[in-house]
Amino acid sequence: MKINLFIILFAILLLPFFLLISPLIIPIVLVFLVLFLKINYATIKGAAGERHVNRILNQLNSNYKVYHDLYVPNKRGGTTQIDHVVTSPFGVFVIETKNYDGWIFGDENQKYWTQVIFKRKEKLFNPIWQNYGHMKALKHYIGEDFEFIHSIVAFSPRATFKFKGGFKSARVIQYPQLVKVIMEWNIYKIGHAELQQINRALDRLILTDKKEKRELKRQHVQAIKIDRQMMAKKEIENIEQNVCPKCGGALSLRKGKYGAFYGCSNYPKCRYTKRVS
């Protein structure tokens, strides 16, 4: 992220120099900057959101310890990247940040939520499910029996929620609410010795060597790509055998408003669907 910003700033600083040498170079540099920003926009925007949340969480008092951008070992032998973890005597908070604009639609049981900006619609993986995976990895790391762990999904204040109901397994809020929501848990649940043990375990995940962290991030991204390929392959195999890849129930071919699709026989408990291509 810092390297990307350095490239942009360096290119901007060189613009006057290019103008003196040859005015024709300016359009080329500008095209390069536009393409670079377009390719890296999601990464830059996500990192900006995480930095903003860092500043907000640092307002918490001395009862709380804040961790950012942790790569937590998971059961599969890889790592799970968690945006923010806050530890305290009142519980451990796992926070997933979403620096999104526009209207946000979704519910707890939907695999994908929808972001609407004017007439453009984009899918995003259910962040409650995403953060549940983060919590499972964290519990695997600090202790499977640990129960005082809470899920928070924090959106940018530029997002407008269009949810029809509430959520049971997570708090879905906006950045400015973070400190207030975390402090709603105010009953002591974790003893001093246990809290110190958790903090020491998380301290071991902090990487100060930038080169080492870049390599870990590269391995993490590569593992995600492989996992997605394997999941897609397994999903196809299950559909071919009429087995729901989500719950193991039977799939049946149905017809809907937008064409034929596979639906799970365990509906409404399982809402898995797959369009017929």
Rank of each mutant, 00 (worst) to 15 (best):
I3H: 13
I3S: 10
L5E: 15
F10D: 14
F17T: 15
F17R: 11
L19V: 00
L20Y: 15
I21T: 06
I26A: 00
L30I: 11
L30D: 01
V31D: 08
F32C: 06
L35A: 10
L35D: 08
F36T: 02
K38M: 14
N40V: 09
Y41W: 04
G46D: 03
G49R: 01
R51T: 02
N54S: 15
R55I: 14
R55W: 13
I56E: 03
L57N: 03
N58K: 13
Q59H: 02
Y67A: 09
H68K: 09
H68W: 08
H68L: 02
D69A: 13
D69M: 12
L70I: 05
V72A: 00
V72P: 01
N74L: 13
G78E: 12
Q81Y: 02
V85P: 05
P89H: 01
P89V: 02
G91S: 04
V94T: 02
K98T: 04
G102T: 04
I104A: 03
G106T: 10
K111W: 10
W113R: 07
V116P: 06
F118M: 08
K119L: 13
N126D: 07
I128G: 06
W129L: 14
M135Q: 07
H140G: 12
I142F: 01
I142D: 05
D145F: 05
D145K: 06
I149F: 01
A154S: 00
F155Q: 01
T160R: 11
G166T: 05
S169C: 10
I173G: 02
I173L: 03
I173Y: 05
Y175S: 07
L178P: 02
N186G: 10
I187K: 08
Q196E: 12
Q197C: 03
L202A: 04
R204V: 09
L205T: 01
K210Y: 11
K211F: 15
K213C: 05
Q222N: 09
I224H: 13
I224N: 04
I226W: 11
M230Q: 14
A232Q: 14
K233Q: 11
N238A: 02
I239G: 06
N242M: 08
G248R: 06
R254F: 11
Y258F: 12
Y258K: 12
G259N: 04
F261G: 08
N266C: 13
C270A: 09
T273M: 00
T273H: 00
K274R: 11
V276L: 14
S277H: 14
